[in-house]
Design a protein around this nucleic acid. Structure first.
Lengths: 147, 147
DNA sequence: ATATAAAAAGATATAAATGTCTTTTTATAT
DNA sequence: ATATAAAAAGACATTTATATCTTTTTATAT
């Protein structure tokens, strides 16, 4: 469904948010350790997210990643769009270059429904809502314990 | 959602089914032309499907691909499983190695719903049902006209 | 000021998915 | 029998995704 890069992106953002709440500003090394992702690659992913202004960063000693401004909620949709690209939510499930209700692929109707549900999920769930589940011990970020 | 290889697989199978109904037994070159896919690669994909006994083939002059036996219906699920592998329908949407209701990722509940819907779609839709839509001009296999 | 610790950047490396080219095998039409 | 047309097989080639290694830049703690 989602590429690994996107999975790292979401997990990393949730981790950053949680550490921010605790007053921390984690480095990508700390993040990678805690979400069980490759260190340098996670750095790259975060670099891109920062470029897209989905997260902030400061260089130098004591620096790291954090959410700035009035913590408006950040939907998964925005992250997925930034990482996977815009077409992700409109691609035909059958692989046709052109597919819409006027000239549908044979799966079009059923598939549209599911895509819509997924779209809604990604617009409903936010980094904040996921983080809350983790905080309330209703979900885990990975198999390892959070430090 | 689905890899390109799987998309080719499904489109190819639908095309084969339609041609079979007309009494034809298409070659992978004919198939590729009509579903707008790379020729040789389509050959490989069909070779694998034939290995998995999801379609039959005969070599030699006049040969090609066809469905044998009492045309039992073939679900998309079976094709997807053969091409993408078994884990496809159970992978965590968040990328966790371990994720289930006892130790869920933060998206687990919502995502499970969607995965279930998709699973149901792929078990409801068959090569036959898709072919029928195409036959009834309610859907198209690709942008080009079928010959 | 200087050392330090962090992100950013750049250059590669590896793996997986996708695609192509060539040769071999094999039915079957002639 | 032979030519032909088809799948099968094998060997590469390309592209995209994922991952690592090294160097540079830059805040800030000391």
């Amino acid at each position: 469904m989602l590429g690994r890069t996107t999975e790292y992106a979401i997990r990393a953002m949730v981790y950053i948010y949680i550490r921010n709440q605790e007053g921390g500003r984690p480095s990508f090394k700390e993040i990678a350790k805690n979400i069980d992702s490759p260190e340098q690659f996670t750095g790259k992913v975060l670099q891109n997210l920062a470029r897209s202004n989905l997260v902030s960063s400061v260089k130098g000693k004591g620096g790291g990643f954090f959410f700035s401004g009035p913590s408006k909620s950040l939907t998964l949709y925005e992250i997925i769009k930034a990482v996977e690209g815009d077409e992700y939510f409109s691609k035909c499930g059958f692989g046709l270059k052109q597919c819409d209700s006027s000239s549908p692929c044979p799966m079009h109707d059923d598939y549209s429904e599911i895509r819509k549900s997924f779209f809604q999920l990604t617009n409903k769930q936010t980094i904040q809502s996921l983080a809350e589940k983790v905080n309330q011990h209703k979900a885990v970020l990975n198999r390892l314990q959070l430090t």
